[in-house]
């Protein structure tokens, strides 16, 4: 099993609903977030192009954050999801620095926090909160090892990319372009 997400940049309008849905679902304190919006504009008026992306932890196959964690708090869970065990975390912040995507933050309660792909929901057969809430239905989540999963099918059909592939982290969040 290999959980992954695909996000359609052609449909995302950057409304940030994914951000609030994650914050309320996961009780993320106000002022912090596990996912966020990036907007990139190219060109000069009126020859313009714009890409809008909802970004989060890429749940990399080769995660620098897991490698550098001195206590084993950062680890791989079922389906390759990168997780943090709060009571093992000493809040040293090495993982925050190691992540090329800046996907982690220090929770005020003294541990490092990040996207979990809403594993607590996935275990119940639900999709992650951001995927379930998105008004544009631009996010797909599922098991890459299952060729019939929605995420496998959409990645087969559409062109996609990952972020900062040169970092060699093998990210598992794909962007449909």
């Amino acid at each position: 099993m290999r959980y992954a997400m695909a996000i359609d940049t052609k449909k995302c309008v950057g409304c940030s609903d994914c951000v609030v849905a994650c914050q309320t679902e996961n009780n993320v304190p106000i002022g912090f977030c596990r996912d966020w919006i990036v907007e990139v504009t190219d060109g000069t008026y009126p020859q313009l192009e714009m890409e809008i992306r909802s970004e989060r932890c890429n749940h990399c196959d080769n995660s620098p954050c897991v490698r550098c964690c001195p206590t084993g708090a950062s680890h791989y869970g079922d389906g390759g999801i990168v997780l943090v065990t709060p009571n093992k975390c000493i809040g040293c912040g090495a993982c925050i620095v190691s992540c090329p995507y800046d996907a982690r933050y220090s929770h005020p309660d003294g541990y490092v926090d990040k996207c979990t792909f809403c594993i607590h929901r996935v275990e119940k057969g639900l999709s992650p909160a951001c995927v379930a809430a998105c008004p544009t239905k631009c996010m797909y989540f599922g098991d890459l090892d299952d060729p019939k999963s929605e995420v496998s099918l959409v990645l087969k059909k559409r062109k996609s990319k990952t972020l900062i592939p040169e970092a060699g982290t093998k990210p598992q969040v794909y962007y449909l372009i």
Partner: peptide, 25 residues
């Protein structure tokens, strides 16, 4: 109050709220 999510039967939202509705808390 924990969270607000859409009602799947609703034609206005089709079960998906916008950020303002989600942030209604």
């Amino acid at each position: 109050v924990w969270k607000i999510i859409g009602n799947d039967d609703d034609l206005h939202s089709n079960g998906r709220f916008c950020p303002r509705g989600t942030g209604g808390v």
